[in-house]
Design a protein around this nucleic acid. Structure first.
Lengths: 229, 229
DNA sequence: ACACGAATACTCTGCTTCGAGTAATCGAGT
DNA sequence: ACTCGATTACTCGAAGCAGAGTATTCGTGT
């Protein structure tokens, strides 16, 4: 598979617009904005113009006319090419059919969470849960309003998807916060203890050199597998 | 709030490593890899070294010693500074407590999905559902193996989170595929019709100029709100 | 004894991305 | 008539990021 010539999903949105009719870049940006696509696809001017250049360079779109109105900056109108149509269909199909690993910031945070004491993490997650509830309420209100206007589900589909993900995240975060607060989760005691020792000036190296001595039996889990007798 | 001096989450992972003890960049990379952090935080050499430079420039880490072994490239060992520790804690707290909008590729795909005919989209989503099931099975098997080794939940937490998100995605995708296949969803008929007309050479502009004529009553939903009598 | 692949430890270059900046015109009010 | 903010339409430069490339040494087998 030849790697996609232009990588930014914004390029796909550009092709999608030009499928309807030729436009100039600024018009594309306002069209995407009007239709609420900027909720789903990151749009900023810098990227837009460089993405358009790149599509042009690769023959996926072609310049139709450049006109200038008075002394205003000139506008170049682009049309999609056949290659561009093929690319659009192929790319969109791939996007829909093939999951790709995406790195979320919560996943990053979770993987480094031992860097803060468990009680603090629990509180931070409570805060997050609150934010998530607000966002979920906002989206649900929006959907209710849209449906009341007679707009059907299909036009909200990206947003419905987002709502599902947010709900899953909320459930996970609330559960984890609860388990951390209760202190009943295996390993949390040792984790807490590490932070107490460190705040007393014991270095991380020292603790990990002999975790069982510093942390008790729970520390055994911190030993590398080959030393875990 | 002064925007974060270094943005890449990899920088946070670097600070997290140096919190334990001073290391040189390559050692940081292998440490992260060993601990499976590269599953949660994108790691590549180019970024690593530029991120380390940037942390250094901003006084969050400091060079301790540069040694060269024979004729090998010299290694610079870095230690975290107090500013770096503060940044680590603050940043990690923010990551855990504050959801940020993230643009996923499926969301992009969904928002442009009218660009393909509904039956094709349904099939593509079936394919995605298959991939998702495989990935979910892989993760579940991994978790079972890890638990059998006596490793507790906390060490798998990022992965448990991922599993929850994947399950939510699968549920959504499978539901949507079903609804599209059945053709019972409001709007799908019109969507299908648009693609039939277009394959007969009718332009998108023409269809959208008078959707009710081309698509029947279902087309009314495509009119801009001000013209929707 | 030495050959060859894996591991060590970066460096370099070119593309992308971001966000601020620019500069003209339009429209609504005073 | 004029001013002031919004809209139109890009441009620019600095920074970030990806990934291939490079050079050395270690280890393992034959």
């Amino acid at each position: 598979m030849t790697r996609r010539r232009v990588g930014n999903p914004l390029a796909l949105a550009v092709l999608g617009c030009l499928l309807e009719r030729p436009m100039h870049p600024y018009e594309i940006s306002t069209t995407l904005r009007e239709r609420g696509k900027e909720q789903s696809i990151k749009l900023n001017y810098g990227s837009l113009y460089s993405v358009v250049d790149s599509l042009h360079k690769h023959g996926l779109i072609q310049a139709q006319e450049t006109s200038r109105d008075g002394r205003r900056p000139e506008r170049t109108v682009y049309a999609i090419t056949e290659a561009g149509q093929a690319e659009f269909e192929d790319w969109l199909a791939e996007l829909l059919s093939t999951p790709t690993k995406e790195f979320t910031s919560l996943e990053a945070g979770l993987s480094l969470m031992p860097g803060l004491p468990p009680t603090q993490v629990a509180t931070l997650l409570d805060t997050r849960a609150g934010h998530l509830r607000e966002e979920i309420d906002r989206l649900e209100a929006m959907h209710a309003a849209a449906r009341a206007q007679g707009l059907h589900e299909l036009f909200l589909i990206e947003s419905v998807y987002r709502l599902r993900l947010l709900s899953a995240e909320l459930e996970f975060v609330a559960d984890l916060a609860r388990d951390l607060h209760s202190g009943s989760m295996p390993g949390v005691q040792a984790w807490q203890r590490v932070h107490e020792l460190r705040s007393q000036g014991v270095s991380a190296e020292e603790i990990f050199a002999d975790p069982v001595r510093h942390l008790g039996e729970e520390g055994r889990a911190l030993l590398p597998p080959d030393r875990a007798n």
